[in-house]
Design a protein around this nucleic acid. Structure first.
Lengths: 190, 190
DNA sequence: TGGCTTGCGCAAACTTCTTTGCTTTATGGT
DNA sequence: ACCATAAAGCAAAGAAGTTTGCGCAAGCCA
């Protein structure tokens, strides 16, 4: 009935899913201690039955939402003119992003929802794509660069590790990580 | 009544806690999907009420058990005669350890149990202590060494990151990480 | 427009979790 | 050996969470 009123024609399923996603986002953001299907359903204004029928468990839903949220924002990696600047700015942005309580909770919920199987982790894939762009540009400028794997292992991994394990990230940590990883690529200009 | 039969005099509380710890260990190791107080209590042969009264929630208990398990094994860091050998063997052992399904589940449960507060992560503290020993020995031999923070950020963090996010650890990954971190400490001997 | 399919709401039954007051048992000190 | 205390067991009530069958309404296609 509202097909033409808004912008795009949204089917009922889509509206319901959107309401559920929003509700999950709010609850996780607020740091709700108990996130269950009934709680989510009430917030979303839908019937709990819908959730039970559509998702296996709360973990699945949380992961789905976090993946969707991650895919949505299309932030491009920075382009400062040097690989050091790019990486430093990028690492700082990541640190800032995942330090936000709501984002940290999301990450932990994602981790908790992981099952046995090795899976293509959307977080890692996204960061890999951004790293590839920056490194390709730097190689085009003739700079000595680390590999993508090195950037993921030595910049991304420490930031996420410290965050999900609750260690916190010092202000100068992103810079230090970048300096370290560049030391592997050849010599750092003094 | 069994005070003299076994080895040490164990009070009832101690026996009960031990039974509970064991039950948790079994359940986590089996990958039980639902780990609740009633389930743990049944496995341990104690009354659920005991659990409700003693622990705030299941997460607290899981963390307590995982910390206890971590503190128990007193494995010393390897001593091969060179920092490269020490670190490589150490990293390989860590990778092997945390790749075990039961251990992975423990780590994820720990992460999920983390609350807002920044906390002294027992996992990180333990690894830090081992790293300090190896690096001190290496400095005593006159070797160029990375810092403890660098070892934690560039060897420990990537291993744990890849594990808890379900990315898996390649066979040569520990070696590569060690090679990378040593490149930061000065030049690697060819 | 009219039927057809899909998905959601509703309500009731059912399971599991959680709390609470009281009793019983073990431990430690005198 | 006895008493005081702390911790665990027990049972019942209450609150959530979860499942299920059924009906209705929205969207889709002819």
């Amino acid at each position: 009935m509202v097909t033409s009123a808004g912008s795009r024609p949204e089917s009922r399923s889509t509206r319901v899913r959107h309401a559920i996603y929003t509700a999950v986002g709010e609850l996780v953001g607020e740091g709700a201690e108990k996130i269950s299907f009934p709680v989510i359903a009430e917030r979303a204004g839908v019937n709990p039955t819908t959730l039970y029928r559509r998702w296996e468990d709360v973990g699945s839903l949380l992961e789905e939402v976090s993946v969707a949220a991650l895919t949505r924002d299309g932030d491009e990696p920075p382009d400062t003119g040097s690989i050091e600047g790019d990486l430093a700015q990028w690492a700082g942005a990541i640190a800032h992003d995942i330090s936000r309580p709501a984002r940290t909770r999301y990450l932990r919920a994602m981790v908790a929802a992981r099952t046995e199987a090795l899976i293509e982790c959307p977080v890692n894939e996204r960061r890999r794509g951004q790293a590839e762009v920056m490194l390709a540009r730097a190689r085009g400028r003739g700079e000595a660069t680390p590999t993508v794997a090195q950037v993921l292992d030595h910049v991304v991994a420490p930031l996420y590790y410290r965050t999900v394990f609750g260690l916190g990230i010092a202000d100068d940590q992103p810079q230090r990580l970048v300096r370290d990883v560049l030391a592997m690529a050849g010599e750092v200009q003094p």
